[in-house]
Simulated assay, not measured.
Amino acid sequence: MRHIPNGLTLLRMLLTVPLAWLLRDGRYDLSLAIALLAAFTDALDGYLAKRFSWQSQLGGLIDPVADKLLLIACFFGLAGAGALPWWLAALVIGRDVVIVTGAVAYHNLVGPLTAEPSLLSKLTTALQIALVLATLLHLSRFAEWPGWFNLGLLAAVTLVTLGSGIDYVVRWSLKAWRETHTQRDGPQ
C-alpha cells in the first residue's frame, strides 16, 4: 500500500506520452482530460503520502520529474499548435534545464544537494499550470477568456519563470561559494 503514491507518480509520467500525441493532433478536449487526470493523480499521491506517511526518497525524486515532464510536454505541444509563443516554451524548458544542470554541478563539485523549492518556484509552477489549463480550456472551447486575461497570465508566467530561474542560480551559487570556502578555509 505504501507504494501507491509512487505508482500514481509513474502513471503521471506515462500520461505524458498520450498528452503529447493529443496536443500534436489538435485534440484539445482529450488533452484537457489527460491534463486534469494528471493533476488529480498529483494531488492524490501527495495526499496519500502525507496522510499515511508513505513518503519515500524515490517519491521525492520522481514527483517533481513527473511534473516537469508534463509541463514540458504541454508547453512544447501548445507552442507547436501556435497557442503559446515558442520563446515562452524555450524559457520554461530552459529554466528547468538550468536548474537540473546546476543541481548536478553542485552535487558533483560541492556535495550532496537537498532540493528546497522556494516559494517563488512553487508560484512559478502554479502559474505555469494555470496558463496551460487556461489555454487548454480555451482551445477545447470550454471557456473563452478576454484577451487581457491571456496576456496577463502570459506576462505573469514570463516574469516569475525568469525570476525563479535567476533566484535559483544566485541562491545556489552563493551556497556553493560559501560551502567551498568553508571546506577550504575551515570554519571562521
Rank of each mutant, 00 (worst) to 15 (best):
41 T>L: 10
59 G>V: 08
149 F>P: 00
154 L>G: 00
66 A>W: 08
135 T>P: 08
2 R>F: 02
182 T>P: 00
49 A>C: 07
90 A>K: 01
88 L>N: 00
3 H>T: 05
148 W>K: 03
51 R>F: 10
175 K>T: 06
51 R>Y: 10
47 Y>H: 15
13 M>V: 13
16 T>C: 14
146 P>D: 10
44 L>E: 07
70 L>R: 04
174 L>I: 08
10 L>M: 12
88 L>Q: 01
18 P>C: 10
54 W>P: 04
43 A>P: 04
103 A>H: 06
47 Y>A: 11
9 T>F: 09
53 S>W: 01
34 I>W: 07
186 G>R: 13
168 Y>A: 03
143 A>T: 11
100 V>S: 03
156 A>G: 11
44 L>K: 03
73 A>W: 07
10 L>D: 03
144 E>M: 13
98 V>F: 11
157 V>H: 03
26 G>K: 05
157 V>N: 02
55 Q>K: 14
168 Y>I: 06
113 L>D: 00
19 L>V: 05
53 S>R: 10
57 Q>D: 14
67 D>H: 10
162 L>M: 14
71 L>C: 11
43 A>M: 15
103 A>D: 06
169 V>C: 08
108 N>A: 14
12 R>H: 04
127 L>P: 06
112 P>A: 12
158 T>I: 05
73 A>P: 04
48 L>P: 08
124 T>K: 14
19 L>S: 03
65 V>N: 01
72 I>F: 09
142 F>W: 15
139 L>A: 09
123 L>Q: 07
69 L>D: 05
74 C>Q: 15
54 W>L: 08
156 A>W: 04
91 L>F: 04
126 A>G: 07
93 I>A: 13
136 L>P: 04
103 A>K: 02
55 Q>W: 06
86 W>S: 08
61 L>W: 15
98 V>I: 15
64 P>W: 06
4 I>C: 06
152 G>V: 04
85 P>H: 12
69 L>W: 07
95 R>F: 08
116 E>S: 08
180 T>K: 14
7 G>K: 09
